[in-house]
Amino acid sequence: MYEFAYQKPASVADAVKLLADPEAKPLAGGMTLIPVLKQRLNKPSMVVDLARLGLAGITVANGTVTIGAMTTHRTVAQSAEVKRAIPALAALAAGIGDPAVRYRGTIGGSLANNDPTADYPAAVLALGATVRTDRRTIPADQFFQGMFATALEAGEIITAVAFPVPEAAAYVKFPNPASRYAMVGVFVARGPAGVRVAVTGAGQGGVFRHTGFEQALAKSWSAAALEGVATPADDLNSDIHGSAAYRAHLVGVMAKRAVAAAG
């Protein structure tokens, strides 16, 4: 690590003020930032720890599950309310990283980072969730803007994510054999936002909606409906773990399994 200043503000307003420094970095669970700092891949002037902002917690009301940005993956995974309202979301959280990561990592941190192989972006996009920040609300369709890129402005802090409760939803992923991040993760949902399918891990630009699958599933909500529906490989990743064609194939396999699991 390079040396940096450290602040742990007690209010969102104070945190936003500190993050006005363009060289400052917000710290949520630190599951990405800390390794990056240790490898000296980033040199922030200051690390602003968001742990004391009171942003953790889960509420379910009026058909919406609202999860505070600093809620850990473990809390979401264990939440009886989330399990009841959106079991697919609890299951997704239970499958992120390893126990140590789940105890530290947060939903807000994951979304702000928008790692192209992260799990949460698929849930947010497929469920048509809304990202709340210190200054506005951002619909999922506008939030994700490519690999590690989001609609967040400099210094903007996610405060919560609001998920409309779907009628049916499931997330199935194919983990990268080495890293266990999603090599392909598919979240399917049917609900107030219509039928939506989001794919993480596979795309060069990060999470994306699979409109071909959405149209097919809107006609018939069944795994069989996806048979023969193509996934173009053009914009998919290719590396030592698999070609773009393999990933395109896996998108179909994971989607079918997700639909079957969603019931």
């Binding site: 054999p177 590396d239 030592i240």
Partner: peptide, 19 residues
Amino acid sequence: NAVYDADGQLVSGSFMDYT
């Protein structure tokens, strides 16, 4: 698998890629 690319860089140089 320890994989070098054609240029001699170790592609599987961390646990992110070395299984």
